[in-house]
């Protein structure tokens, strides 16, 4: 089940959580020129693997992402929503950039019944 993506300073790990949830953990820095080139296929493949499980998409260990990383994340959210997945997106609320970025992303998820964005420690 475990899948990993390494690209530059970015690492994204997909694995089983402690309960029936699945985890998608983002770490490092996403600062490549065209992150959509590798993120879109990777994230599409992850959405296919979620099945009926709850997905926790955890950005708290992500130090930075450039604005070119945002469209692939939005694309992933859209695919998860259209597929009816249950998702919790977690960001670090004491991080200025994460707080601003993910709070704004609620513009997209506010009307989605099964996708929530949560700021945590």
């Amino acid at each position: 089940m475990k899948s990993e993506l390494y690209e530059g300073s970015l690492r994204v790990v997909f694995e089983e959580g402690s309960d029936s949830s699945l985890l998608l953990i983002w770490q490092g820095r996403s600062e490549e020129r065209d992150p959509a080139d590798f993120l879109n296929p990777f994230l599409s493949s992850i959405v296919e693997k979620v099945g009926n499980n709850r997905l926790i998409c955890d950005f708290r260990a992500l130090e930075y992402m450039n604005s070119s990383t945002i469209p692939p994340v939005i694309r992933m959210i859209k695919k998860l929503h259209l597929d009816g997945k249950t998702v919790k997106i977690v960001f670090r609320r004491d991080s200025l950039w994460q707080n601003a970025t993910f709070r704004a992303m609620r513009a997209i998820t506010d009307t989605m019944q099964t996708i929530e964005i949560s700021g945590e420690e």
Binding site: I70, P71, I74, R75, I77, K78, A104, M105, A107, I108
Partner: peptide
């Protein structure tokens, strides 16, 4: 962000 969501 909403524009990107609707027209990716």
């Amino acid at each position: 962000l909403l524009q990107i969501y609707h027209s990716p």
